[in-house]
Computed example of a mutant assay.
Amino acid sequence: MRTNNIENSKGISFDVKGLKIPSRFFFAPINTGLSENGVLSEEFFEFYKERSHSSIGINYIGNVAIDPKYVTNPNTAYFTDQTSQWEKLTKLIRKRGSVPGIQIACRNSSLTPIRRMINNDVETYLNTVRKDLINIPREEIQDIINKFIDTSIKASKLGFDVIQIHAAHGYFLSQLLSKSLNIRADEYNASDLFFLKTIINGIRDKKPNLIIDLRISFLEGIKNDIQEKKDKEDLIKKLIDLDIDIISFSNGIYDVNKQLIYPLEQWGHACFLENIIEYAYKYPNILWNYAGNIWGIDILGLEELPNNLSFSLGRALIADPLFVEKSINNKTHLINRCEHKNKCHYYSLNLSHIGCPIYELNKNTID
């Protein structure tokens, strides 16, 4: 991977497999809830259109399920026979100046996703997931692996240049990666990464130049932080030997503690950034991505950070789709800032799709 300076901005661009990613700031993958039976609504298109600019390097379509039976909630997106809508979307994102990315995901659990932010009965969750993983047949795991490969290849054909494999937040691949959850002793154990290698090699066989991103939860919220960091250090040593272009850090398990996924305001700006910086310095040929509580680009201290470190923004860009553009053009006084109204956590509020009072109040000012 090569990095190049962008003139007149606080960002840098990346050259990955011959594709220029125009900015180090990405729109984080988000399950918007703006689709029904796999069909994308007009609101879905508008949501991603407004957050596509040359100041946004990759615009990730979040949480696209590998199959309807593996959705997170009824309004989760997935591929249907109506592929033209996805081609329209990727062309729109590219025309607006961003690189089209997609997060491929699978939730496979006997548990209904919890709505509250913190699970008060973590032991039941742990025991249920361990039992689920032990009992799932090899054939079903292999079928899920094949669906990850097939969905990624299909996404590439529909115009997506970046595929993010969702192995964070307690989704199925995240569970397989977790030594706290996966106690299988066969080839699908938590240590050998056979399932990840199979997915990545399967994609590479058909699409050798496709950019592959892997998203993991650095802190799961199960063990103490010291032990979790040690586990992730061991995991990352294995991941860098895989044919992955980007490793994205998030945190948390959805059914344990959502606050690690959506950090509290009082935890501070970029509160988990220290967990990733050392890896960016140590492994310069990987593009690393950080997400979590980024409120201001001007206070990130970019001149002190490694050039192969990128940032995914969620709430800031939901509240103001021009957050990055205003930031790098010294118009921070015009930013409509997230005020933690929490309507973006729509599922927790028993709502069907994403919302943002700050965006709704100011949307008529968006170009």
Rank of each mutant, 00 (worst) to 15 (best):
residue 192 D to N: 13
residue 176 L to C: 15
residue 181 L to F: 05
residue 204 R to N: 11
residue 170 G to F: 04
residue 177 L to D: 14
residue 185 A to L: 11
residue 211 I to F: 02
residue 207 K to V: 09
residue 184 R to T: 01
residue 179 K to L: 08
residue 187 E to T: 08
residue 174 S to C: 11
residue 171 Y to W: 11
residue 201 N to Q: 10
residue 207 K to A: 15
residue 171 Y to L: 03
residue 173 L to I: 14
residue 172 F to L: 11
residue 196 L to C: 12
residue 169 H to C: 13
residue 192 D to C: 05
residue 167 A to M: 07
residue 167 A to Q: 05
residue 199 I to F: 08
residue 178 S to E: 12
residue 175 Q to I: 04
residue 195 F to M: 05
residue 197 K to Q: 11
residue 200 I to G: 05
residue 197 K to E: 15
residue 180 S to I: 02
residue 211 I to V: 11
residue 180 S to Y: 12
residue 192 D to G: 05
residue 209 N to S: 11
residue 173 L to C: 15
residue 208 P to C: 09
residue 166 H to M: 09
residue 194 F to E: 02
residue 173 L to Y: 03
residue 199 I to G: 07
residue 179 K to T: 13
residue 187 E to A: 04
residue 180 S to E: 14
residue 175 Q to R: 09
residue 209 N to E: 14
residue 180 S to Q: 14
residue 189 N to R: 00
residue 190 A to M: 00
residue 166 H to S: 13
residue 184 R to S: 02
residue 170 G to P: 05
residue 166 H to C: 14
residue 184 R to E: 00
residue 211 I to H: 01
residue 205 D to C: 06
residue 204 R to F: 00
residue 170 G to S: 14
residue 180 S to N: 15
residue 205 D to E: 11
residue 194 F to W: 08
residue 197 K to F: 01
residue 195 F to W: 01
residue 184 R to A: 03
residue 203 I to L: 05
residue 181 L to K: 03
residue 190 A to W: 06
residue 182 N to I: 05
residue 202 G to K: 01
residue 186 D to L: 02
residue 191 S to W: 01
residue 203 I to N: 02
residue 198 T to R: 11
residue 198 T to S: 14
residue 197 K to R: 11
residue 180 S to M: 09
residue 172 F to D: 12
residue 206 K to W: 01
residue 183 I to Y: 01
residue 173 L to E: 10
residue 188 Y to A: 09
residue 185 A to K: 09
residue 170 G to L: 11
residue 198 T to F: 07
residue 187 E to N: 08
residue 189 N to H: 03
residue 204 R to T: 03
residue 203 I to M: 06
residue 189 N to A: 06
residue 181 L to G: 10
residue 178 S to N: 14
residue 173 L to Q: 07
residue 203 I to G: 07
residue 167 A to Y: 06
